[in-house]
């Protein structure tokens, strides 16, 4: 294994939580990723997508029917557990509290976004520090860049979708400009990384 691959594996080994953020153009890859998670995926997953509160969203229900992991909307003060994929509810920021529980927050939107990817990534990094893997996908604004930079600052593993492969390049591009991102990956490579996380962690269990 080369030095870079060793570094990535060392990050995966200590990871305790997986964060994924996306906005416009990222939904289909989110679907693919969630459906691809194996039953014994070793990390809890928090997903923040920008969506309107005006329409009832069926994302969680649909994914829960077809995914091997349980998929649900995050609830206030819920304990984070492995084997569950949590989505930030529309119109609330999703925050991570000390002790590994979730809380919801109705404060001002960030860059016109509530939920804001930044808010979730920052609060998760405060609690899990270097044990975070954060993935930022396609989007049409710059939410998530601060969050990725903060995860990087606290030595978590940062992954950004290659802007050339993203339907909307603004969001991944902003993150790459703001942070010293560990991995810039195309869609296939992101799926492979998820499989690698699964293999590495489960081998060590």
């Amino acid at each position: 294994m080369n030095k870079e691959a060793l570094y990535i594996v060392s990050k995966i080994k200590i990871a305790e939580i997986l964060l994924i953020g996306c906005s416009a153009g990222g939904f289909s890859i989110i679907y693919d990723l969630v459906l691809n998670f194996p039953e014994n995926f070793p990390l809890p997953v928090l997903i923040v997508i920008h969506r309107s509160r005006k329409y009832k969203s069926l994302i969680e229900e649909q994914l829960n029917l077809n995914s091997k992991l349980k998929v649900k909307m995050a609830e206030d003060k819920e304990q984070i557990k492995k084997g569950i994929v949590y989505f930030a509810p529309p119109d609330y920021h999703l925050l991570v509290e000390e002790g590994g529980s979730l809380s919801l927050d109705y404060s001002e939107p960030v860059l016109f976004c509530r939920p804001a990817i930044d808010a979730t990534f920052q609060s998760a990094a405060d609690v899990y520090k270097e044990k975070v893997i954060a993935v930022l996908l396609s989007g049409a604004n710059e939410d998530g860049a601060e969050g990725i930079a903060y995860v990087s600052e606290l030595n978590g593993l940062t992954v950004v979708q290659d802007p050339d492969f993203a339907e909307m390049r603004t969001m991944p591009q902003a993150a790459i400009e703001k942070a010293n991102v560990d991995l810039i990956l195309n869609n296939l490579q992101i799926t492979e990384l998820m499989n690698e996380i699964n293999q590495v962690k489960n081998l060590l269990e």
């Binding site: 920021h93 925050l95 509290e97 000390e98 927050d105 404060s107 808010a119 920052q122 609060s123 405060d126």
Partner: peptide, 9 residues
């Protein structure tokens, strides 16, 4: 108060 919120404030 929830700390993550308070920190943001």
């Amino acid at each position: 108060y929830s700390r993550a919120s308070i920190k943001r404030r």
